[in-house]
């Protein structure tokens, strides 16, 4: 008996078995918290589930999906999400790259400078929302006060500008991330090609455009992918700052889904939205993954 146990144990110690044994806890947990909820979500998306009937909801077929695909509000949220992600990530990469190039010069207090440039990315997005709700307050906010002094009398949280404001706040919060990664990327670049370009008499712009940028492109790809995926997740600060308003102007897919589930108590429809959202993200992720793959860094 003891011998059999011993043999089983020594067999388990062999790499052939142990590799699966080691990964088993992870697989079990992912099945429980990722795959099971996902399958459950698909099931619920074909029903009319809400809080009091969710254990035995009525099967409604494709009704939720048809409602969504016909709903201008749903398409509006897709549009808002795409605008938010597109413009925010574009600006973050542009500004982040600029700052990275600025810091990448001979500076005396580099370490402290870098530290001081990173603060926003550590703060909870919900608190970022609180900070800007305070600063954008119509009556006593600092930002409207100075804008009025400069002769700009626009309500930054008005229907016309709210999305733009939320984008700028995202840029404020996440440009530090882009800067940090791109700066680290610049650090890893080989110095020889740049020297060769200098010898050949390339201007600063030329050596940036034709030497630095191509060398940096794998890292740029990583930054764009990570920022894009995280920007699609943005919820906290929008919820705290505008709750999707005024009207639907800042209702991203996240906010839309949240309201379907927890304001309108329509879990079936909310699950259908997440499935559609998932399809959109999967398409984008496929593109992103091939970008990452090409970057050869993974």
């Amino acid at each position: 008996m003891l011998l059999t146990i011993k043999r089983i144990f020594s067999n388990l110690q062999k790499d052939r078995y142990i590799r699966y044994l080691l990964i088993l806890p992870l697989v079990i947990v992912l099945v429980l918290i990722v795959i099971y909820p996902f399958i459950y979500s698909i099931k619920i998306s074909f029903t009319n589930a809400y809080t009091s009937n969710y254990l035995h909801p009525k099967f409604v077929g494709l009704k939720n999906y048809i409602w969504l695909l016909r709903s201008p509000k749903f398409w509006n949220s897709v549009k808002v999400s795409l605008i938010f992600v597109g413009i925010a990530v574009f600006l973050e990469v542009l500004v982040g790259l600029g700052i990275a190039l600025l810091v990448n010069q001979r500076l005396k207090v580099k370490k402290i400078t870098i530290s001081l440039l990173l603060t926003p990315m550590f703060i909870a997005s919900a608190i970022v929302g609180i900070i800007f709700r305070l600063m954008l307050n119509e009556l006593y906010g600092v930002i409207p006060y100075y804008l009025t002094r400069l002769g700009i009398n626009q309500g930054l949280l008005s229907k016309r500008l709210a999305l733009f404001t939320v984008i700028l706040i995202d840029v404020w919060q996440w440009t530090p991330f882009v800067f940090l990664i791109l700066y680290a990327g610049l650090q890893t670049l080989p110095i020889e090609p740049l020297e060769a370009a200098m010898v050949d008499g390339a201007s600063k712009w030329q050596s940036f455009r034709f030497v630095v940028l191509p060398l940096l492109s794998p890292i740029l790809a990583i930054v764009v992918v990570f920022r894009m995926m995280d920007a699609f997740k943005a919820f906290d600060k929008i919820y705290v700052l505008t709750a999707g308003g005024p009207g639907d102007t800042t209702t991203t897919i996240n906010v839309f889904t949240y309201f379907q589930a927890y304001e309108f108590d329509n879990f079936g429809r909310a699950c259908a939205t997440t499935i559609l959202f998932l399809i959109l993200i999967t398409i984008l992720a496929k593109i992103s993954m091939s970008l990452l793959y090409k970057s050869k860094l993974y």
């Binding site: 918290i33 589930a49 919820f235 996240n254 589930a261 997440t274 959202f277």
Partner: peptide, 15 residues
């Protein structure tokens, strides 16, 4: 890592 939290939130909340 790339999926938005709402995707998990609603089914997990119900479970």
């Amino acid at each position: 890592r790339m999926l938005p939290p709402v995707v998990f939130l609603i089914p997990i909340g119900m479970l």
